[in-house]
Simulated assay, not measured.
Amino acid sequence: MTEHRPFTSLGTLSRKWLSARLHFRIGNLGQLAHRPLGPLVVWNDDEVAPHSGFGLHPHRDIEIVTWVRSGAITHEDDAGNRARLVVDTVQAMHAGTGIHHAERNDEDAPARMFQIWLQPRAPGGTPRWTMGSCSKTQRDGQFVTLASGDPADVRAGALPIDTNARVRIAMLREGLSMRVALDSPQAAYFVTDHGRIDIAGVRLEPRDGALVTDESNVLIDAISDTDVAMVELLG
């Protein structure tokens, strides 16, 4: 079963410095029908204006995965950590018992990112975050796991997250067809970036989402060159 979530149907959050589309409902924001998928509770498509951003703010008991699609974002936290996330960079943060952090665009151009929130397996734990990258060459024609709650994925190079899900990305070129096997419970959420795909017979335009459930594998046909990100649930 495939539920199409067109970009134009997504909830919105607009500020002078932020333009966001919400693939999942957050509190009173977003579409009522766009309910969480297991531990996947937030997938925001964010654009942050130059020389602006989120000031210091708190999180706890949540796993946050950030994928930078253009521009750069600077992260700082109350433990004294600071890092600049550029294009093709991923960050995985375990908020644990509580962390305050800031996310700013200190650049002269807008920054675009996907930010994904997942509920942890258990509350608490020491806050931490890790970073990695995935080049276009690495993900050309195949899905690469960016972050995962599966120890085998972590041993293979994925960033660790304490949740029953994995976050993956692929760059698909026009004309490519591929099948993606889904782990039990056979559920995943897919988002295109700048191009178009057909997924399980449904056409996705740029920045559309697709919720796929009860499928052991999913056929994807690339109509144009694009990145495709996905969160797959784990048993």
Rank of each mutant, 00 (worst) to 15 (best):
M1Q: 14
M1K: 15
H4C: 06
F7S: 07
T8S: 14
S14D: 10
A20C: 15
R21D: 01
N28W: 07
L29I: 12
R35H: 12
P36G: 12
L40C: 02
N44S: 10
D45I: 00
D46W: 00
P50Q: 06
G53Y: 04
H57V: 09
I64W: 00
T66Q: 04
S70Q: 14
G71R: 00
G71H: 03
A72V: 01
H75I: 08
A92L: 03
M93G: 02
G96D: 05
T97P: 06
H100Y: 11
A102F: 05
R104Y: 08
P110K: 05
I116T: 03
R121L: 11
G125T: 07
T126Y: 10
K136N: 15
T137Q: 10
D140K: 13
G141F: 09
Q142D: 12
F143I: 04
V144H: 14
T145Q: 11
T145L: 06
L146Y: 02
A152G: 14
N164G: 11
N164E: 13
V167H: 04
S177G: 08
R179K: 10
S184P: 13
H194E: 13
G195Y: 02
I199A: 05
R203T: 13
R207H: 15
D214N: 15
A222N: 04
D227V: 05
E232D: 09
E232G: 00
